[in-house]
Simulated scan of single mutants.
Amino acid sequence: MTYLFFDIECANCFDGIGKICSFGYVLCDENFSVIETDDLLMNPAAPFDWYLFKKESRCRLAYSREEYIKNPKFPDYYKKIKSLLESSQRLVLGFGCQNDVATIATECLRYDLDLIDFNCQDIHTVLEKTYDFKGGLSSFVEKFGISTEGMDFHDSRSDAYFTMKVTEKLVKDSGKSLKEILEPFTPFSSKLLRKQKIKKLFANFLERKEAAKANPSGKPPRPLKKITVPSWFDYKKELAYEIEMSKKDGK
């Protein structure tokens, strides 16, 4: 059994779709000895949100805009990321990872690639329930006295490493195996989150379509949740695909 800890950063989440600019990971064995680690920087093929490079930003990216843009796009890393996430006898973990899992699924949609089908355990929920303590990754790193020397938060590889270290502390304190600790917790499924995202986008499309009919003389008002169907999103094709997959799954 191997553990893969990963984290992603996005250039923006406009239209409800994240555009990945980095995929950082740490692959280790059951003793938390590192086997492989990297930060895959990529051109998001999309504009960066304005606050990501501001010095005072709470979510400031670790590299310059130019550093991301000069790298290949997501499809060039697709096989590597797919092999990391789908490998057999591998437990995939992240910190507050629901959006990360959903974003990987929608990046596959954006580039017309087959879904990367994997489950991911969210160690954040486990930590909060175990220690009765609320906080983000930096709060748990500080609480556990984990060194951050030479590393920055919102650097994907560093965040993946910090996620591994807080998990290692959890295992040590509990006296149980990681598998035993995670047994009561349901992982996030990329397949399920992809379906949820499709339904959300499609529902939003219908809402805006009805608004347009009701107000033909002007631009329809945006719904409360500011998510629209991107121009590349063929919702009919994707819904048909999901229905077919559900039949195969016997659902």
Rank of each mutant, 00 (worst) to 15 (best):
residue 3 Y to T: 06
residue 214 A to W: 03
residue 58 R to C: 05
residue 88 S to K: 12
residue 129 K to A: 11
residue 141 V to A: 08
residue 121 Q to A: 14
residue 226 K to R: 12
residue 218 G to E: 11
residue 44 P to R: 14
residue 8 I to D: 00
residue 117 D to T: 00
residue 32 F to N: 03
residue 113 L to Y: 11
residue 55 K to M: 09
residue 91 L to I: 13
residue 95 F to Q: 05
residue 224 L to E: 14
residue 100 D to M: 04
residue 92 V to D: 01
residue 123 I to M: 01
residue 62 A to L: 01
residue 92 V to H: 00
residue 64 S to G: 14
residue 115 L to A: 07
residue 208 R to D: 03
residue 127 L to S: 03
residue 177 S to A: 04
residue 98 Q to E: 15
residue 130 T to F: 11
residue 42 M to V: 09
residue 96 G to P: 10
residue 18 G to F: 01
residue 53 F to N: 04
residue 149 E to L: 15
residue 16 G to C: 07
residue 84 L to S: 00
residue 136 G to D: 06
residue 96 G to A: 10
residue 202 F to E: 15
residue 49 D to Y: 06
residue 201 L to F: 09
residue 225 K to A: 15
residue 232 W to V: 05
residue 207 E to I: 07
residue 129 K to F: 02
residue 74 F to K: 05
residue 137 L to G: 03
residue 194 R to D: 12
residue 82 K to G: 02
residue 96 G to M: 07
residue 248 K to C: 03
residue 227 I to T: 11
residue 49 D to C: 08
residue 97 C to K: 04
residue 113 L to K: 14
residue 219 K to A: 13
residue 79 K to E: 13
residue 93 L to P: 12
residue 234 D to E: 03
residue 212 A to H: 05
residue 208 R to K: 15
residue 80 K to N: 07
residue 43 N to V: 08
residue 243 I to L: 13
residue 71 N to K: 15
residue 151 M to F: 09
residue 193 L to R: 02
residue 95 F to M: 03
residue 201 L to Q: 01
residue 175 G to T: 09
residue 217 S to K: 15
residue 64 S to H: 07
residue 14 F to L: 12
residue 192 L to P: 02
residue 136 G to Q: 04
residue 40 L to M: 11
residue 163 T to A: 08
residue 218 G to T: 14
residue 246 S to A: 12
residue 174 S to E: 02
residue 233 F to L: 10
residue 118 F to R: 00
residue 141 V to M: 04
residue 138 S to Q: 09
residue 177 S to Q: 08
residue 81 I to P: 01
residue 62 A to V: 08
residue 14 F to W: 15
residue 44 P to E: 06
residue 209 K to W: 13
residue 199 K to G: 09
residue 91 L to S: 11
residue 231 S to R: 15
residue 114 D to Y: 06
residue 238 E to Y: 09
residue 29 D to C: 05
residue 181 I to R: 08
residue 247 K to A: 00
residue 113 L to A: 04
residue 109 L to W: 06
residue 100 D to P: 01
residue 175 G to N: 03
residue 150 G to R: 07
residue 6 F to I: 07
residue 4 L to P: 00
residue 108 C to M: 12
residue 129 K to D: 12
residue 160 A to K: 03
residue 151 M to Q: 10
residue 162 F to R: 07
residue 159 D to R: 01
residue 64 S to N: 06
residue 206 L to F: 09
residue 28 C to K: 01
residue 161 Y to M: 14
residue 181 I to F: 08
residue 184 P to Q: 10
residue 172 K to H: 04
residue 103 T to D: 09
residue 82 K to E: 15
residue 161 Y to E: 02
residue 151 M to N: 07
residue 210 E to I: 03
residue 191 K to S: 11
residue 7 D to K: 08
residue 223 P to W: 11
residue 151 M to T: 07
residue 93 L to E: 04
residue 218 G to N: 07
residue 108 C to G: 04
residue 201 L to A: 09
residue 123 I to F: 02
residue 166 V to D: 11
residue 218 G to S: 11
